[in-house]
Design a protein around this nucleic acid. Structure first.
Lengths: 210, 210
DNA sequence: GTCTATATTTCGATAGAC
DNA sequence: GTCTATCGAAATATAGAC
């Protein structure tokens, strides 16, 4: 009785501390980049001694890899909005909404991902070549089916996907620039709604699905 | 006679070495980020001893700042395509072409800029608040004039500009991801032309200017 | 599982001969 | 203007008491 209890309590502590560290790491990696981030900064933000980070994550790279993996999972889940949609206006519209919401709720993760890709994806190249490639090919087929059914213009599915990624993630990755051009204030609820509406309106009309 | 001659020769050497260092620095900063880049890496890529870098640029920050400034100048020049255009299809179409060409020819610079903004623009915040803000307001007025003239749909000029920046710069900043999804090969001349055509077709139709 | 003290490496920057 | 040698600071990572 005592052994399993101690084990589960130990697991609970581990889970909680890992969550604490990963959350702090996401913020620090986003704001300073991998090279600019220090274990000390992450430890301070997590409120733990630096040595504890190495107890839970052997190296800085391992901690970073976990952060990137978590972000990737969030991207993939946004794809659900894309599936089982009867037409492009519904499917792509919902996908834009989902990606814009992620940009607002997880700006740090988006930046870490962007930085990783910009530096040549040294840590997650395997994900690009397997999971992301499969995902992209699957959605391209869905778009091609919509085109064949006459529901939208015959656009190149890949360039449409790139435009969707670029436009939605821009609100997270370049959020500081947007905030500066907004008079130094973050976008309000109304402004975020207007942003989503603008993006959807232009793209859906642009592909003949409005 | 000899003094001016020595001076101009010295200036020529300085100019040439600065160009060599700035070019190497742009590449290293883009691939490793500011924190990940080392003066040693930049020196090796430039083919110079590390100490020479500090002779031409006192600190790492000063060298970085010069790199970012150079990129900013290139962005601004692309605005020429925007001006004196009779209608949005011509002006925005030319702007997309120019930005896409820059993404292809200066991918490193685009990444350094993106990284700088993602980290909160610690070095070029003043540019965002002055030059970029003025530029943005000026183009927004041009777009509003086109809207008032009935030449395009009444879209929010700022969100349109964000879409233009995001979409065109995506081909530089996320070039590695695009290359991976392209079978590991860089986009060919034909594929770049197709990308430009796709972007222009969707956006120009999307704003009612096609 | 926690935390202080420290080992080891590496980086930015400089001194000083040429 | 060039370059070798090196200093001092800061980073990752670990040892070892609790």
């Amino acid at each position: 009785m005592t052994a399993p209890e101690r084990l589960s309590k130990r697991d609970a502590i581990r889970r909680e501390n890992e969550r604490l560290i990963l959350s702090a790491a996401e913020k620090v990696f986003a704001e300073a980049g991998f090279g600019g981030a220090t274990m000390q900064l992450i430890a301070d933000m997590a409120g733990l001694p630096k040595a504890n980070l190495h107890y839970y994550f052997a190296t800085k790279e391992e901690l970073y890899r976990r952060v990137v993996q978590e972000i990737f999972e969030i991207w993939l889940h946004a794809a659900d909005s894309f599936d089982n949609a009867p037409d492009p206006a519904t499917g792509i519209g919902a996908y834009i909404d989902a990606k814009m919401d992620i940009s607002r709720r997880h700006p740090h993760g988006s930046k870490v991902w962007a930085s990783e890709v910009m530096h040549g994806a040294p840590v997650i190249q395997d994900y690009l070549e397997t999971t992301l490639r499969d995902w992209t090919e699957g959605r391209a087929k869905v778009i091609e089916a919509w085109i064949d059914a006459g529901l939208m213009d015959p656009v190149d599915p890949r360039h449409l996907l790139y435009m969707l990624w670029a436009t939605t993630q821009h609100y997270a990755d370049f959020g500081h620039q947007i905030e500066t051009l907004n008079g130094g204030r973050p976008l309000s609820d109304r402004q975020w709604a207007a942003a989503k509406q603008s993006v959807k309106a232009i793209i859906l009309k642009g592909i003949g699905a409005a």
